[in-house]
């Protein structure tokens, strides 16, 4: 009984419950067949949302107004440039990854530079940055689709012990993020900044350094995701990140992280990512019309958020 109580107090439990319900409803249609295929697909595609969502979570934790809208553009630029550099050569996999991550660092530095030096609000600064980055992607790539090196394509699309490799990578990212958030000094700092920046400053926390590191971390994770997604889907496309702008924010919110900042959790990102993929699969499986599908997706998401935040009549 106590365990149930403890679990119910966890903000992330609701996204996992929702994912489980939707999974059951989808599998029920086929009478159990396809359960394995659906689980594998869900783990694979949720992995990408987890990677970008984790970065976005750290940024949102910093408190009201902190958000990174340059995520899709960073993914696109990292994917296109890395694939162009690797040019189907297995020997270039490591340099490709390094370049992708370097692009992430550069975008992150640029983002925080705009926010801090020019005193532009994050929402505007990162949006402006995303125009620059997206244009750079168009300029370097011109719609060129180069196939990923064969080893990398093989790695991203296959499984180890029936678990998709992408899910393993995302799990690693999530574990590192969990340690950072819950066990490290850095995690304490961003939580403190999110709860009250003024108080954090008074307490001697290096506010600027922490925020800077967080924006860089978010962009690096987006770049990593772009690199992996481009390899997974057989080449980078100019519009490949578009879906992940709303996705990265939605998984954070549905996962039970407070939009007001200062209260985050990592497991919820996994639950929310699985849930968002499964909802679309479920509605597709039921064969509902597009309009109805979109309305249902919206309603279900609102429902989960309302239930998840209901417990937030929390103690002060």
């Amino acid at each position: 009984m106590k365990a149930v109580h403890l679990l119910a107090a966890k903000p992330w439990i609701w996204s996992w419950l929702a994912a489980a319900v939707v999974w059951t409803a989808t599998v029920a249609v086929t009478g159990g067949a396809g359960a394995f295929g659906l689980t594998q697909a869900a783990l694979t595609f949720a992995a990408f949302s987890v990677i970008v969502g984790t970065g976005q979570m750290f940024v949102i934790t910093l408190g009201p107004g902190n958000i990174d809208l340059s995520v899709p553009a960073t993914m696109t630029l990292a994917g296109t440039v890395a694939l162009k550099l690797m040019n189907v050569d297995n020997g270039m996999i490591a340099p490709g990854l390094v370049v992708a991550l370097a692009i992430g660092i550069a975008v992150g530095v640029g983002n925080y530079g705009l926010i801090k030096l020019l005193r532009i609000p994050p929402i505007i600064a990162t949006l402006a940055m995303s125009f620059i980055v997206q244009s750079a992607a168009i300029w370097t790539n011109r719609g060129l689709r180069i196939k990923p090196p064969s080893l990398l394509a093989e790695f991203t699309t296959s499984s180890t012990f029936a678990i998709p490799n992408m899910a393993i990578v995302a799990l690693l990212v999530a574990v590192i993020a969990w340690v950072l958030l819950e066990k490290s000094l850095y995690g304490r700092w961003i939580l403190a900044i999110g709860q009250s920046m003024a108080a954090a400053r008074m307490a001697g926390i290096p506010v600027d350094g922490t925020r800077f590191a967080t924006y860089v971390l978010c962009a690096v994770l987006a770049a990593l995701c772009g690199y992996l997604l481009a390899c997974f889907s057989g080449g980078a496309a100019l519009n490949m990140g578009a879906e992940y702008l709303l996705m990265s924010i939605a998984v954070v919110v549905i996962g039970g992280t407070s939009v007001a900042g200062g209260d985050s959790n990592v497991p919820g990102i996994w639950g929310a990512s699985l849930f968002l993929f499964l909802v679309v699969s479920m509605l597709n499986t039921y064969g509902l019309g597009a309009g109805f599908r979109l309305i249902m997706t919206g309603l279900i998401i609102i429902g989960v958020i309302v239930v998840a935040s209901g417990r937030r009549a929390r103690q002060p």
């Binding site: 659906l38 993929f277 597709n284």
Partner: peptide, 23 residues
């Protein structure tokens, strides 16, 4: 027997088809 939205994009189509195929 099935219909998904791929948004004319290769990665979106891949994701949507992978999600509906098992059923």
């Amino acid at each position: 027997v099935g219909s998904v939205h791929g948004d004319w994009a290769q990665d979106v189509a891949q994701k949507a088809v992978a999600g509906i195929l098992p059923s």
